[in-house]
Design a protein around this nucleic acid. Sequence first.
DNA 1: GACGCCATACCAACCAGTCGGTATGCTCGC
DNA 2: GCGAGCATACCGACTGGTTGGTATGGCGTC
Lengths: 217, 217
Amino acid sequence: MCAVLREKTAPAPAANLRDALLETATGLFRQQGFIATTVDEICAQAGATKGAFFHHFKSKEALAEECLARWKQSFGSMIAGSPGVAAADPVDRVLAFFDFFIHVFSDPKQLKSCLAGTTVQEVSETHPRLREAANDCFVALKGHLQSLLDEACRSRRLKRDTDSLASLWIATMQGALVLCKASRDDSVVPASLRHVRAYIASQLEVKPPAPRRAAKR
Amino acid sequence: MCAVLREKTAPAPAANLRDALLETATGLFRQQGFIATTVDEICAQAGATKGAFFHHFKSKEALAEECLARWKQSFGSMIAGSPGVAAADPVDRVLAFFDFFIHVFSDPKQLKSCLAGTTVQEVSETHPRLREAANDCFVALKGHLQSLLDEACRSRRLKRDTDSLASLWIATMQGALVLCKASRDDSVVPASLRHVRAYIASQLEVKPPAPRRAAKR
DNA sequence: GACGCCATACCAACCAGTCGGTATGCTCGC
DNA sequence: GCGAGCATACCGACTGGTTGGTATGGCGTC
């Protein structure tokens, strides 16, 4: 489905060296952050030399910028390929969107980390371009969710602040990843997301199912 | 109230050099992160020399560890001194707790950053002691909120997963701070927190006020 | 033979931490 | 009261290792 998101098992099945550098860098950045990851480390893990690295990327920052651009794009294809994306009812599409993320983060093999979130924390003051690139990821994701919410509201003739609701989802997801890194407890992410799902479902006036079951499927 | 939380205006009214180092380091770590902040930078801003620094702290990591310990402690006194902490109704105490944080993060002068959150992202893999110290902050805060929620549930004879609800609050707060750093839009934090407040209020079966809609701005 | 692709050797800047040394003040025996 | 002895606080030049980035040269291919 989405190659970028599962790094734990996949080593580097990249066609060319350039892609290998991008993929291993993404994985390392997600685990250790941008600053703590050295160029030498990326090269070693990708099976490249420093010469090759700086042949393909003019700087470490440029590499990270491209990683973030790919990360953002991977959302699009990931969401586009997710189940329930084409459900007839707009509200179902919203819920399917949530369920998909909850499902992804319930996978123990899934690396619990977002490239944009980890990067922006450490470079927002020092690397404006990276801050911007990370923000683009959030904006894209938020835009996607917000348009889903807008359609759902329209279909139910509801007026809701879909902007802040979309932000809420992303914020909780990012924050849960932070807590997960701190506590090493993977369950925080799906548990928090399920709450937000329930909240937004109630905002869309979805009747909660009689047997107390948060996620459907 | 809490000296650590308002760094934007307060320069360094520390009595001794050691405290000055701790306070300026906390501020710099919050803005730039642990790795990006150099010892020289801390010294310069605190008006100390390198010799003084390493006289008081055996390493940069040890300094950060103490910063985090103070950060955690500052929560306790901050919450203890917050309004509504002694309300008669346990549910009111929960809501006052939320309102307090929302109020703090609505202050434009407030630095929108959590030391524990920013630190843990970049050092969780490389500095186990700092990861632990940051996690302690979260555990303490979560414990505090959870006991408030437990009391509220008991008073209303409700059974709720207060553990994950407390995590939800912290996760959303942390994530909103990340989004805030990325977008430079301060309003994300209070807006997201207001949603979580509304959700938990509904979980505690608090009747939503008639004239007011969910949350705006 | 020129160009894309990559390897090796190297560099300058930076940074955490060290180390020899000074200044000040406290304590205690006399 | 006074000086020896010692502890604490601090100074700042220096170092050894690291890191992002460069210079140059080899090599296969069109």
